[in-house]
Structures are given as C-alpha cells and as structure tokens.
Design a protein around this nucleic acid. Sequence first.
DNA 1: TTGACAATAGACAGATCTGTCTATTAGTTT
DNA 2: AAACTAATAGACAGATCTGTCTATTGTCAA
Lengths: 210, 210
Amino acid sequence: MAPKKSPRPSARDRILAAASQLFYQEGVQNVGIDRIIAESGVAKMSLYNHFKSKDALIAAYLQQRDETWGKQFQEKVEGLATEPREQLLVIFDVLQDWFKEPAFRGCAFMNAAIELADREHPGTQVSLRHHQLIYDYILDRVRAAEFPHPEVLAQQLMILVDGAIMVAFMDQQPEAAQRAKQAASALIAATSISAASISATSTTATSTLQ
Amino acid sequence: MAPKKSPRPSARDRILAAASQLFYQEGVQNVGIDRIIAESGVAKMSLYNHFKSKDALIAAYLQQRDETWGKQFQEKVEGLATEPREQLLVIFDVLQDWFKEPAFRGCAFMNAAIELADREHPGTQVSLRHHQLIYDYILDRVRAAEFPHPEVLAQQLMILVDGAIMVAFMDQQPEAAQRAKQAASALIAATSISAASISATSTTATSTLQ
DNA sequence: TTGACAATAGACAGATCTGTCTATTAGTTT
DNA sequence: AAACTAATAGACAGATCTGTCTATTGTCAA
C-alpha cells in the first residue's frame, strides 16, 4: 500500500508527517489547515480528499502516533530488559531519553485531550484509549512479575509515568524520570517485601486522616 | 476596593468569574470573548477597559485562581493535619475531594500551559510559577518533617500529585488520589527507614539498566 | 442641577479559519 | 493515443474571533 521506491512519500503520508510535527509542537488548536498544506507541499483539496475534516485529521494523527510511538516505546523497553520486573523500571529510562529530546512537549495524547475539551471528539477517544493501552502494558508486566495486588501497583506506576511527563514538561526537567524511577523502585520493593502490611498501614492512615 | 453591600459584584469581578468558569471548563482557546461578555452580562468595552487583551484576561484568570485556589488548598490541608508528615499525606485526600467534583477537568495551570503552547505567554508564566509554588509548599513540609534528601522526596511527591491529577482526569478515576497516597506513604516509609540504602540501591539499578 | 465618569448595546473592521469549488496539470493504465 | 485517476493552485463563501468606535444611558458627588 505504501510506495516503496518513490523518492517522495505519498500525499497522505506527507500530510500526516506535517500534521504530526505541527500538531505535537504547537497544539492541535493552534495549527490551521493552511499551515499543514504549506508544510507538506500539498493542495488543500488533496488534504480534504484523504481526510474528511480537520477533526478527522487530528484523530488520524493521534491514531498513527499511538501505533508508531507505542511500538517504538515497547521495543526500547524490551531492548533494555527482559525480566518483567526490570522492564517496569527501564520504562523510566526510556522516558528520560524522550524527555531529553529538544522537541519534547509533553504527551501528545494528554495534550490533545485537554485541548479538545470534549470526550466525544474522535481525537479524544483515541487519546483515552491510548492511555488505557499504556496501563494495560504496565499491568501485564506487573502480573508477569507476580506482584500481589497487581492493579494497585500498576495504577501507581501509571501515576508515576504521567506525573514524570508533566513535571518534565512544566519544569523542563528530564531528571523527573529518574525521580520517578527511584519511586517506582521503592514501591516495588515495598510491595515485594510485605504487600499486606504496607497496604493495611496506608489504608488505616487514610481512613484516620479522612 | 471590592464592593461590600452591593447586590451585584463589580463588572471586573463578574468578568473574572465568568472567565474562570468558562476558561477552566472548556479551555482558554475554546472560549471566545463574546461568550464571556454574554455570561457575565457585561459590555464588550467594559471588558477591554479592565483587561487590555484576551491574553491579559487569561493571565488574570490564572493569577486569581493561583491565589484563591492555592489558599483554599492550603487551608484544607492544614485543617486536616498539623504535623508536616501528616500534611504531606492529606494533600491526597484534599485532591480526591477535588477530583470528585463534577466540574473537575484537570489542573487549570497545566491545561493553560498546554493550550497556550508558548512559554513566553503571560498565562504560561503564571502557570509555571504556580507549579513551582506547589513544589515549594511540599518541599517546606518535607524539610519540616526532617526527612533526608528533602528535594528528592519533594520531587517524587510532586510527580505523584501531577500524576494523580492526570490519571483522575484521563480515566475519570478520583480514586487515583488514594493510589497516589498509598504510594506517597510507601515512599515516606522507605525514606524514613533507610534513605541511604534505598537511594543507593535504586541508583545502582539505574546505572546497571541504562 | 450639573458635570464627571463608568457602563451599556451594538455596529464595525480586519484577520483567520474551515471547507468547497473550479479549472488545470501530471501520471498511469488500457 | 486515449481515458481515467490523482494531484495541483488558488479563489471563494461563510463562520468566527479579537479589538475598536460610537452614541447612549445611568450614577454619584459637588
């Protein structure tokens, strides 16, 4: 389907490439169709022949990013560690590499969900699904590592991932990844040692304080 | 300065109230000036007499929210706990109450920073400063509780706060606050027991895996 | 009462944005 | 060569948005 020898990518691919660049860098609401056709060197009608509206293009951009970004992320993690327990930790090393990129501007999916401000928007739907997929990926590894209460630990790690992204973005602090990794390490250690007692303690503290 | 007995707030206050509502609920870029003047029942010229541009209004909205929201948050935390160590934990209880509000739509400051996509925008500047203030608040308490490596723990707690907000928003899951609280509890416990060894362990793991 | 000032309604200009239409050109297949 | 398809440039309509201008009304103090 994709052209193999053509020196120039298809119109559709060029549109998606330009949209991906601009939408991520400046936000889906801050980039107009005209910018995208100028950047991709494509006629406006070509864009509207491939995507029926800007909203559809936004959804396609996120869909494509979900696939390529998710696959790359997974490959990097699995290239750094084989054991599920280690994989959960190297996630944060992969994150840090990402945070260090000059073009890093937070999570494209969170950004889109916030910008679109409409849970029914197709772009938001893709973003929410992506968020779930990341959670599933973490949960799979927590289960494989046979930690007790896998959902609890997976949710905590998910919070660390999202939090690291936001801190790295807001404070321009790639080291947030290492802070999150240390925290993840401590959580995993605490869970391994005595999940029941830790959980009980914090639950008690919770109800007491609330 | 603010009218005390007048049944109707001043034009400026009504503008800020309407802007606050709409900007937070739908995003600063998705709400036009016309919506705000309609909602506040104010003439367009009144708005531009009080704020020299929409960007200035956005900055004022965030500035005002920084003050009122920050103060309320602080009061709630301090109403629930007096000891710094406890205060660090009840932060997450206060967060959960917030997450449960039907109008909850994430952090107004992160949202604005993402939407504006320009670190030089006055609204972004207010947002970044707000983020720093929250960090300082946490750091103060970590220091007061005399934990070792206060910056490390404070950054980790900050990551948990931001992460809880994003997970609560994306997955519409107010319970993220309790997951984060449990994690905070475990981190604090780990730090108290043996900060040096934990830190050394995770650092070793890090360099090994990287 | 009069004068100063603030607020009002609404028209308006100018910019920008999405999406459509048209007429033309290039490339591929039969 | 002919026919079909895909892409092009760019004008255009229609909507929306920010910010300005004007002419009028209300309010309060001197």
